[in-house]
Design a protein around this nucleic acid. Structure first.
Lengths: 271, 271
DNA sequence: TATTTTGTGTCCGATTACGCACAGACTTGT
DNA sequence: ACAAGTCTGTGCGTAATCGGACACAAAATA
């Protein structure tokens, strides 16, 4: 569960064909140019105001940043990696309601309301984040208009994402939803490599593991993905987009409309 | 589509057993004691500030109060009836993401953000509402702290409801979800009579009409509901609660926690 | 290296829901 | 009273997914 990514040595990669794949986990800790898009979008002045209070932290996969009913002490601004918001149905049973990466933040919206988390917040893919005390941010926000504006718009983007996920989960097949998830994850991480087990994906999608396996097999047979133990690699993004439902495009569009410049196009192919 | 409820005469009711059933549609226009819970929960002073700007309107079933991408000109505070938020998946295909009645408001949260609706907002069950220009409310809110506080907490309650609905739609059977819907609707209207067609319910739940029919039949066979053309009557609430998933209880609890006094218990039996 | 843990492949029957079609019954409007 | 429109009952084949089991392979651990 609590794998120490710092000690993780270079992953083997898929084959020589993809010479940089599999490095994501380590790259995170080597390069410093991953940045949180919300912070980037703020005025340099406002960003400077926050700077001294932002504390860099490492996001370890499986780590529970926050649980249902817990006080939201920190707001997290991911710089890399992927975080899931999970809603509890029964003790032990969860469904992913939202995927958050460097384009967003955790606790920025609900954290400033009642201050109690409605969801379980779990790190899915290792990364780094800047965090800040919620109370502090609440004090500072009125003095940083650009950030306050971003907060409002991000809140709306978040709701929009949840609404679309709701519709998607209600109407679309597991295969479509899996494609959507992979595409979103790819956007979040700017990488075609998704270091997740099918079991983890099944939990997030709220379906059986065997159903994910079947879908993954089918996608691989069509050449859209390639996978091995614990890693899925997107090899044909266009194919994934066609197989996915419109929900992916709708989610992207809404996000781009509400928060332009924060959701950049991922590279066509970068391990 | 646009039925004039004012002209609707007394519905026949189911049998003599339930002497007040079927009156809901007319009762709405006869009695004036239906009130919006959010407004009630506000300070009398703040409520008085709003009063002159609140305009009473009639909610006609099928009426589209707001559509995707439309500017949110008004905030609606329902006093009776039921309103649905629907998310579009394809042109013409929608799923209900949220059910709103007198315990809430339309446009209060997203209306004050970008001002553009993310959902289609449709009247499901006839009723009345007070509405107010969004821009005006935005001006007044800072001067009415109790209302501003309610707005924040209602926003969170709304998100919570959507998250739970997402999980529920993802994991639970149509029968369970139908029960949940009926129970929520019952809370919203304080009535055991749900004046909706199975077709309308199917659309909201995002399933086939025949599937709803099958579920309704089964529930009726067990004595939990009784239905005729266009009307479902809850006859055994305890049975419905047992058949429903935990989501209903979770949703109620969260709402009660965030907005105490606004979500009162519905009567055990009142047509 | 050996052992344990974890992830995947695969099979199976059972169940749920889809998708479509059509008949019949109830309302509404004329 | 009649016609048109709408809602519900029902049947039936098909597809998707569940839910559980077990074998096997790969990785982590000792």
């Amino acid at each position: 569960m609590s794998i120490r990514r710092e000690n993780t040595k270079e992953s083997p990669g898929i084959t020589a064909t993809n010479n940089t794949s599999g490095n994501v986990r380590t790259r995170i800790f080597e390069l410093g140019n991953d940045q949180n898009r919300l912070l980037i979008a703020a005025d340099p002045q406002d960003r400077a105001t926050l700077q001294p209070f932002l504390e860099p932290v490492t996001l370890l996969p499986g780590e529970i940043l926050l649980d249902v009913g817990q006080a939201i002490d920190y707001v997290y601004f991911p710089q890399s990696g992927v975080i899931s918001l999970l809603t509890m149905v029964q003790p032990g049973q969860f469904v992913e309601t939202c995927t958050i990466g460097r384009e967003g933040a955790v606790g920025l919206v609900t954290g400033l309301g009642s201050g109690v988390s409605l969801s379980r917040v779990v790190v899915q893919i290792a990364g780094r984040a800047l965090r800040m005390r919620t109370a502090l941010l609440q004090e500072i926000l009125p003095k940083t208009p650009s950030l306050n504006d971003i907060k409002t718009r991000y809140g709306e983007a978040l709701i929009s994402q949840v609404l679309q996920t709701l519709a998607c989960n209600t109407l679309h097949s597991v295969e479509q939803r899996l494609c959507r998830w992979l595409l979103i994850c790819r956007d979040r991480t700017a990488s075609n490599t998704v270091p997740l087990t099918q079991e983890a994906l099944a939990e997030m999608l709220g379906v059986q593991r065997t159903t994910v396996t079947a879908a993954a097999r089918s996608l691989q047979a069509r050449g859209f993905i390639r996978y091995r133990r614990g890693v899925i690699e997107c090899t044909d993004v266009a194919g994934l987009q066609e197989t996915s439902c419109e929900c992916y495009a709708l989610m992207r569009d809404t996000f781009a409309r509400l928060l332009p410049y924060t959701y950049e196009d991922p590279p066509a192919d970068r391990g």
